[in-house]
Write a protein that binds this DNA or RNA. Sequence first.
DNA 1: GGGATAACATAGTAATTTAGTATGGATTGG
DNA 2: CCAATCCATACTAAATTACTATGTTATCCC
Lengths: 144, 144
Amino acid sequence: MHISTKTEYAVRGLAELAMHDSKNPISIVEICAKQNLPQKYMEQLFRKLKKAGLIKSIHGAKGGYLMNQDLNTISLGDIMKAVDENLAQKYCEEDSPHREFCIGKPCGFHTLWNEIEEHLHEYFDSIKLDEILKKIIKKQYLEI
Amino acid sequence: MHISTKTEYAVRGLAELAMHDSKNPISIVEICAKQNLPQKYMEQLFRKLKKAGLIKSIHGAKGGYLMNQDLNTISLGDIMKAVDENLAQKYCEEDSPHREFCIGKPCGFHTLWNEIEEHLHEYFDSIKLDEILKKIIKKQYLEI
DNA sequence: GGGATAACATAGTAATTTAGTATGGATTGG
DNA sequence: CCAATCCATACTAAATTACTATGTTATCCC
């Protein structure tokens, strides 16, 4: 039960992207240089973020990535869902080895795990990228 | 970001234990039979639960496990901490490869992840075993 | 006391996931 | 055309997870 590095890297990358001049694309190479992240890995993550509609890209030389949404419409949950595929878990499903040992139908454990997941999703969805940025930038100014 | 099977199994086992006659110990073998869980694996988990003080054991024939606390003092968080060791994560620590790329000191990301972890811990600590039991038993009665 | 039962302890292994690398193709600016 | 950059997929290495195996110690009951 922890934040995956995929999520951590994606947030770091998006933070750099968001702090960058919004008129000009920033390349993966530049983002990785600034945050010391593995380039090819980040390429994969950023393609997923694009697929999810959070960012957009410009091909070729002088290309790179740009934000595709307002920062206050992108949540940590969106980022996690985009990069960290098997986020949702199915409990007590047909193929579960404990299916026949479920207590009640729907199984009480099933219900419990689903309620927990729901809470977690709501929580992560409530944390928006603009708040994250504010937090980071504020820290930055306070210390420099 | 999901509930580990360790946690799931531990909760299932504890539920059986809690529903069992509190005067007589119940063995791992019996618990595993009721919930179709791997015995040796459960032994390990139950030893951890004992080490954490949630349950107690009686050696030898006719032995087994008993609860060691009131159900309303045991939280899902306690269970997770007991069985799922590396729950706590350290971000932006000395040995992190991104240490020098942290933004601000303390790093804004660091602060963010820690706040998130804190929220998660508070949440899991708020879910008590008695509530879990009530939920399961209620379901059971409704359906039988 | 001896055998059965059950907790205790640790080592080993198999499966899965995570994190990352490698290789190459497609697109664009200059 | 060529360098920069995104796109796509396959592969691999490391770590974690989920077990299994083997044996020990403690207790009950005959």
